[in-house]
């Protein structure tokens, strides 16, 4: 965790506000999360293919390439994600394709990301309930978030015990256990991420909504590979 997570996050938010953004880019969102100690994928924001290649070389293949814009919340639907790019050639082709698809009006940069490998995906969310206020969600991630709606909520602030109860509270709680040769998830670390999201919600009332989906279980550790933070009109 950063020495002063709220300070770091406040700078990121202030800058985004100054640019008139209504949401944080994935990269900005992850920097906020990272400041609060939530494990996020290693990544680099670039603007040119040459920078993308340099970043990929540093991160190590295979990599993921994503369009990263403060106005684009639906990267998958727009074809702005390419995964499993295992060579410079593959990266270059994907970069040219994606740039063409994004079109001239695209206002963002390009995110070169480590490919986090793991077949178990979970999600962490935050919504502001009209009655109870900031609420943290935990559930199955990826496409199963919508399909199975297997999600539990707790109200921020969360204690570690609350967070651990959330991990045990989804129907598919076994996904965090040792299963099919995969190790049991690091529950303490995942619980700490849930507590952190609750803290972010209380520290920054202007964040209306957080959607970290998925966090991929790489071995025991859950790593955030995508993050959306929506800002509200008021509270800036």
């Amino acid at each position: 965790m950063a020495a002063n997570p709220a300070g770091t996050a406040a700078r990121i938010l202030r800058a985004a506000r100054a640019r008139g953004q209504t949401m944080l880019t994935e990269h900005e969102g992850k920097r906020v999360l990272g400041a609060y100690g939530v494990p996020v994928s290693r990544e680099r924001l670039v603007t040119t293919l040459a920078e993308a290649r340099a970043a990929a070389a540093r991160i190590g293949y295979p990599v993921v390439l994503k369009g990263c814009s403060p106005t684009e919340a639906h990267k998958t639907e727009k074809g702005l994600i390419a995964v499993g790019l295992d060579s410079q050639a593959a990266l270059s082709a994907a970069f040219r394709d994606m740039k063409a698809r994004a079109g001239a009006s695209f206002d963002g940069g390009w995110l070169v990301q480590e490919m986090v490998k793991g077949s178990r995906e979970v999600m962490i969310g935050m919504t502001r309930d009209p009655v109870f206020g900031p609420s943290v969600a935990f559930g199955l991630g990826g496409i199963f978030t919508e399909i199975l709606q297997d999600v539990v909520f707790r109200i921020a602030p969360l204690t570690k015990r609350d967070a651990l109860a959330m991990l045990a509270g989804i129907r598919a709680a076994k996904i965090l256990a040792e299963v099919r040769g995969m190790p049991a998830a690091d529950r303490d670390a995942l619980a700490a991420s849930l507590v952190a999201v609750g803290r972010i919600a209380l520290d920054f009332p202007e964040i209306a909504e957080i959607d970290i989906n998925p966090l991929i279980l790489r071995g025991r550790k859950a790593v955030a590979v995508d993050a959306l933070m929506v800002l509200s009109e008021e509270g800036a």
Partner: peptide, 15 residues
């Protein structure tokens, strides 16, 4: 009064 999300109510009361 406003209605809370049922799943949030569930979690809040459990908590």
């Amino acid at each position: 009064s406003l209605a809370a999300d049922g799943r949030v109510v569930e979690g809040a009361l459990a908590q």
